[in-house]
Amino acid sequence: MKNEKILNVSVDCVVFGYDVATKSLNVLVIKRFLESEKEVLVDDYVLTGYHVYQHETLDDTATRVLKELTGLTNQYKKQFKAFGNPDRLTNEKDLIWIKNEEFNTRTFTIAYYFLLKTDDVDLNKNEHQAKWFPVNNLPELGFDHKKIITEAYEDLKTKCLSEPIIFKLLPDKFTINDVQDLYESILGIKIDNRNFRRKLINKKYIIALDEKQVGVSKKPAQLYIFSKDVYDKMFQKNYLINI
């Protein structure tokens, strides 16, 4: 059976990835390029998105989009907003692209964001010319995708203070400094190290391992894991870490 698109409903996905080595929160975007015989018509980046199929739920579409882009499934995802301003697809480059792709200029998009580790995505094999950019240093973006990324980022900042979603961005085994670096990267602030460390290691769902870092030039740090089982058992609607 042929997949039938809903021509004016789409899903756009903001894929956040954290690079532990560079301590950078990044967004995965794809190349948008179109040229005529005489000139380059469109040359920028966009989020990955696609029309919703008639038989799909919105979550199904978002999962499909992520899998096509990264090969990954079962990543943290959140639907955070719908975007439907009449002028969201009407700048000159967008109209050229839309005419070439033959879709509706009055398209409503439901936006999701995903959390994953940059190392989990092999960009060398990516057919979409996908590329990571720091969330605070994005390239020229098409459509209203800068606005979508900005709003996803604001939602992530709020969410990371009330739920332990940041551990989706870290390796399974991490140091306290890794956690602090990630919070600082997301929130754009400096955190008092001693106060943060004391609060974090007192959380029962942050479990110390009988292991330390390997392959580092400085004194190896203690490794920890996040226990979702413990967290779920003691969950209360308060802030994960008061910083």
Rank of each mutant, 00 (worst) to 15 (best):
M1W: 00
N3L: 06
K5F: 04
K5Q: 12
V14K: 05
V15M: 09
G17D: 03
D19H: 11
K23E: 13
S24G: 00
N26S: 13
V27C: 14
K31H: 14
K31A: 01
K31M: 01
F33L: 07
E39C: 02
L41S: 07
V42W: 02
V42T: 05
T48E: 06
T48H: 12
G49L: 01
V52S: 04
Q54M: 11
Q54N: 11
E56Y: 09
D59A: 13
Q75C: 15
F80V: 02
G84F: 02
R88D: 14
E92D: 13
W97D: 09
I98D: 02
T105M: 04
R106L: 11
T109N: 14
T118K: 14
T118L: 05
D120M: 14
D120Y: 08
D122P: 00
N124D: 13
Q129E: 13
Q129K: 14
F133Q: 07
N136G: 13
N137F: 02
N137I: 00
L138N: 10
P139E: 06
L141C: 08
H145W: 00
K146A: 02
K147P: 00
I148C: 04
I148L: 06
D155I: 01
T158W: 08
C160E: 05
L161R: 15
L161A: 08
P164F: 05
I165N: 07
L169F: 07
F174V: 09
T175H: 11
I176K: 11
N177K: 15
Q180M: 14
Y183T: 05
I186E: 09
G188K: 10
R194C: 00
N195I: 10
F196A: 12
L200S: 05
Y205G: 03
Y205D: 09
I206K: 08
E211A: 14
S217W: 07
K218L: 09
P220W: 04
A221H: 12
Q222L: 06
L223I: 02
I225G: 03
F226E: 06
K228Q: 15
K228R: 14
F235H: 15
Q236V: 10
K237C: 01
N238L: 03
